[in-house]
């Protein structure tokens, strides 16, 4: 679920860059305010690789194909580090795999960074009391929010000469096909955090 080049108007692409640049600036400011930001770098580096490679795992969900997004996992595990990590992962996906465009990198960043931050917020709010519910909600909810942002951008930027009705129907089918992925990502985050709780609680994110 990456916007390729040429799909959205230039104004939207520029606005996407401006918004994502602002988001990265806020994230870096929050990271800098942490007592020891460098301590998180190994975890950030490894999860960035997982995020980068996840887009290769295409799962056929008729009539379309979906791939893992892992925005919820990134948000819960990395906190504000998720924003630069996702942007780096998206850049590498665009350059190396052609997944997503370079002109739409800002918009793609918003599509995944905002759900990651919402997942983080959910985990911080209820992760202490109901960790399983928070983990599942963060993983699944991030997919749903990402799909909603993606659909809003696509439908807002439709060119006049396109059959809007057909494109709306295609986007609806595409969104419905991602519901199994939302459940799957919810289970992935739930299982991962459970395993960490048992094996290595020090690696658990702050709840």
């Amino acid at each position: 679920m990456h916007l390729p080049d040429g799909i959205v108007p230039v104004e939207m692409a520029l606005a996407g860059y401006a918004c994502s640049a602002g988001l990265v600036a806020v994230a870096l400011h929050r990271i800098k305010a942490r007592p020891d930001p460098q301590a998180e770098i190994p975890r950030v580096a490894m999860l960035t690789t997982v995020f980068f490679a996840a887009s290769l795992a295409a799962v056929p969900v008729p009539p379309t194909t979906v791939h893992l997004m892992l925005a919820g996992l990134m948000g819960v595990m990395l906190g504000w580090f998720a924003v630069p990590a996702i942007m780096v992962g998206l850049f590498l996906q665009a350059v190396l795999f052609g997944h997503g465009g370079l002109t739409t990198l800002g918009l793609n960043g918003l599509i995944l960074c905002l759900p990651a931050l919402l997942a983080l917020r959910l985990w911080q709010q209820i992760g202490g009391r109901w960790p399983d519910l928070a983990a599942f909600g963060a993983g699944a909810g991030a997919v749903v929010v990402a799909i909603a942002i993606f659909a809003a951008i696509v439908l807002t930027g439709l060119p006049a000469e396109l059959d809007a009705r057909a494109e709306r129907a295609a986007v609806q089918i595409f969104a419905l096909a991602h519901l199994p992925l939302a459940l799957a990502e919810g289970v992935i985050v739930l299982v991962l955090l459970r395993v960490l709780r048992r094996i290595e609680p020090r690696l658990l994110p702050d709840g």
Binding site: A39, R43, A45, M46, T49, A53, L96
Partner: peptide, 27 residues
């Protein structure tokens, strides 16, 4: 791209991330 090309690129990025992680740990 072929699967071989893709896996090679994933391996290169993973190697870069591992190097970054080890560098940070060493420091």
């Amino acid at each position: 791209q072929s699967w071989g090309q893709r896996l090679l690129m994933v391996a290169l990025v993973a190697w870069g991330a591992l190097g970054t992680a080890l560098f940070a740990l060493t420091r």
